[in-house]
Design a protein around this nucleic acid. Structure first.
Lengths: 272, 272
DNA sequence: CTGGAATTGGAATTTATATTCCATTTCATG
DNA sequence: CATGAAATGGAATATAAATTCCAATTCCAG
């Protein structure tokens, strides 16, 4: 058994796999080949399963893991698991700690929000479904009028969208709820409603979304969870997972998404 | 415990999650929310890890699995592990692919905004003056009423501030300009005005800032350049340099700053 | 061939993880 | 405010998986 340090990344592991593959005994080579062909199975399988796949005994597979520099299969699997969902290591606990320490200095708090914002943005890229985004742009681009709906924490997003769309001369209405005047009835067939809401979902937003469906208008949603009522209503949904610091949610990812959406729609309209 | 059959696909599971979520007891709802937010983690985690993530006991998580129609956690995990491979080469590859296609598709545009947002945040940490931030918090915390002023592209920032301050019960007024009604005269000595504006600076914001100074109210500014009129007026200034993509400015840095500011002020008020 | 080292298969053991159980708390109802 | 039902936390148990060990086999040098 070699005493090399364990690879720290999957790439490093793959590299070592290539170097060593030829000098391994028969059974171990089978393991190497199987992993090279099915790297995606490692994170979700047991040694027994992988061994069976490589047509090898579990104990042989264990030796293979050690040959590659790991203490055993578990350590190797951990690498594959964390690298996959390395999104945010465990912000949950980190932020919980922050909450305990209470109001630190404003600068420390700012650093925390900056960090969370960066993580949210990074995560956005891997969680957004390009097909859904494309469909949302398509729908909004051909809408007669775009209705923007979002209250409370979602309102900054819709108000920015209103600004951006206005600048590009895309007809849009910002539903503000001012004076308790509702514009539900202005939604018509051929229009599109872009609803933005995060848990706990605002009643008012949901009502307008329902009105949109009754009128046969298209419904696009920027929301947070797969369980969101808007998803269940069958809206074309763009999911944005943001982290909270205390009771406050970073909005960087939502904004990036909103701007990209607005600009894409604007560009596509001009072409047509 | 219900006796429904176990969901056969993840979509079916998600659907059931949505249906049931509202009628679940507190702890089980936490489980539901955690899974809705982190569906990718299910395949590669243990009950203990997921339970910790949902801030719940493992036994509660088990009950949740059963409530969803599975015999236990293992059965549920099997479902998630089955189509795990579909999501394989993940974020990294995906992001690279998106970039290759240039600035045409909505996804590519999104990648660009994400990148710009990240850069802006990074920038913010090095450009913000902790002393100015501290002074701004101090001033806002002791103000009788905080007036929030910002129009057009700055309006999302002030509207979010209004939301956050309201939530923490800090007295604040959002100057919206609705109906062309101006609230300049409500600014009094002892109040503070938080003005947000970026080049080209909005006339209206500057006028209100001037009114504030006439009244002897404190003036805090979130703006972009040292040459900003607000800086020259002697406001306590927090400078945020945001990068543009085309004509559109990322707002992530401004938001991070605004939230940090609001939370700091809220925390300091509570102490006093 | 033969002796010895390397390799292998499979069972035995250890460790980790899922699952169940029950005492305690919380909640709702009359 | 008392009472029962529902929900919860945490420890106890059962199950499954990882890991080790060793006897059996293979391979190769002499």
């Amino acid at each position: 058994m070699t005493t090399d340090p364990a690879p720290q990344t999957i790439d490093a592991f793959i590299e070592r796999l290539g170097e060593r593959a030829d000098s391994l005994p028969k059974r171990l080579k089978q393991c190497a080949d199987y992993i090279a062909a099915n790297p995606d199975r490692v994170a979700v399988s047991t040694v027994a399963e992988l061994a069976a796949g490589a047509d090898v005994q579990p104990s042989a597979f264990m030796r293979f893991c050690q040959e590659m520099g790991f203490s055993g299969f578990s350590q190797m699997q951990k690498l594959f698991r964390t690298d996959f969902s390395q999104k945010w290591p465990d912000y949950g606990t980190r932020l919980a700690k922050l909450r305990e320490h209470g109001g630190e200095t404003p600068s420390a708090l700012l650093a925390e929000f900056v960090e969370v914002g960066r993580a949210s943005l990074e995560n956005l890229m891997s969680s957004i479904d390009p097909a859904a985004l494309e469909k949302a742009v398509e729908t909004l681009a051909k809408a007669r009028t775009i209705h923007l709906v979002g209250f409370r924490r979602a309102f900054p997003v819709t108000s920015y969208l209103a600004y951006a769309l206005e600048k590009m001369q895309v007809p849009s209405v910002l539903h503000t709820g001012i004076g308790n005047i509702r514009f539900d009835h202005t939604i018509q067939k051929g229009d599109a409603v872009l609803a933005v809401t995060f848990a706990p979902y605002s009643e008012q937003t949901l009502e307008i979304a329902e009105a949109a469906q009754r009128q046969g208008a298209d419904l696009i949603a920027i929301t947070d969870l797969v369980t969101s009522p808007l998803v269940r209503m069958g809206a074309t949904s763009l999911l944005v997972v943001e982290l909270d610091v205390g009771d406050f949610r970073a909005l960087s990812a939502s904004f990036a998404l909103a701007i990209a959406l607005a600009v894409s729609v604007g560009a596509r309209r001009e072409k047509a």
